[in-house]
């Protein structure tokens, strides 16, 4: 479904992403972890056609993003790290706009939009301008937008940021249900608990390189935290080197 082949991106002399190879299969939820500045968002931008790779290629549902971007984008839905939307459109109008861009038939769109607004508890706000929405409400609206066109692939960059606990739970259930139906989900997150509970496989990136990739058990085996029962946080810190802050904490 998603295939990254030797993907790389440099900004001048700085390599933000180097030689990234990855495949995410239908029905799989892939967690993409890494410290700030590791290259996760750059990867997401290259996957979704927002950024041109310096090397390698991105295949989305078999379509090369560089050669056939329209077909590749049609198969995909993106939730960016910051849900900026048109402030002068209402929630319902935004959904109609997105639906039309992705070729959702007008017949039935009204019903589907009203269903999605209700699901995300946005019905009372559906007729208000987006400039009056909070961050979490905009995040939910963007999620509703991608569910409207039912993509085969979801690319999510920190999808839980700003969501209240109830909406967070709803979104997690939606992801699991979509994966059951065969949707491939690529998710960047800093919330290790979510990655641990939702993701079938996890990749850890640091300094633009993927240093580990596999199931939780495979990662545990590869890390220094080999004891059974160690959580993803311990594995993540042992792989990315997070223990050195303890001396700094003493000086705080």
């Amino acid at each position: 479904m998603i295939r990254l082949e030797g993907l790389g991106k440099t900004f001048g002399a700085y390599a933000a992403v180097s030689d990234l190879n990855l495949e995410v299969r239908p029905g799989e939820i892939f967690g993409f972890l890494g410290p700030n500045g590791a290259g996760k968002t750059t990867t997401v931008k290259m996957m979704t056609g927002l950024l041109r790779p310096t090397s390698g290629r991105v295949l989305i549902a078999g379509r090369d993003m560089a050669a056939d971007p329209i077909a590749a984008k049609r198969a995909m839905g993106l939730v960016p790290d910051e849900p900026f939307v048109y402030p002068k459109l209402t929630g319902a109008e935004y959904l109609r706009f997105v639906g039309e861009l992705y070729g959702v038939p007008l017949e039935g769109m009204r019903h589907r939009v009203s269903q999605l607004l209700e699901m995300f508890e946005l019905t009372p706000w559906g007729g208000e301008l987006l400039e009056s929405y909070s961050h979490g409400m905009r995040q939910k609206l963007v999620l509703a937008g991608i569910l409207l066109h039912e993509p085969k692939i979801l690319v999510l960059d920190e999808p839980m940021v700003g969501l209240d606990p109830k909406s967070g739970r709803l979104v997690k259930d939606i992801f699991l249900k979509l994966a059951e139906r065969g949707t491939a989900i690529f998710m960047c997150t800093h919330v290790l608990e979510i990655a641990e509970k939702l993701c079938h496989r996890i990749g850890i990136m640091i300094d633009g390189r993927m240093i580990a990739c596999g199931t939780l058990e495979e990662l545990r085996a590869a890390s220094a935290a080999k004891q059974d029962g160690r959580d993803l946080e311990s594995i993540f810190l042992s792989l990315t080197g997070g223990a050195e802050y303890s001396t700094l904490l003493k000086n705080l």
Partner: peptide
């Protein structure tokens, strides 16, 4: 288009 540019850029349009 401002920061909403991602909506158009990630959509299947030229």
């Amino acid at each position: 288009e401002g920061k909403s540019w991602w909506v158009l850029r990630s959509a299947p349009i030229d």
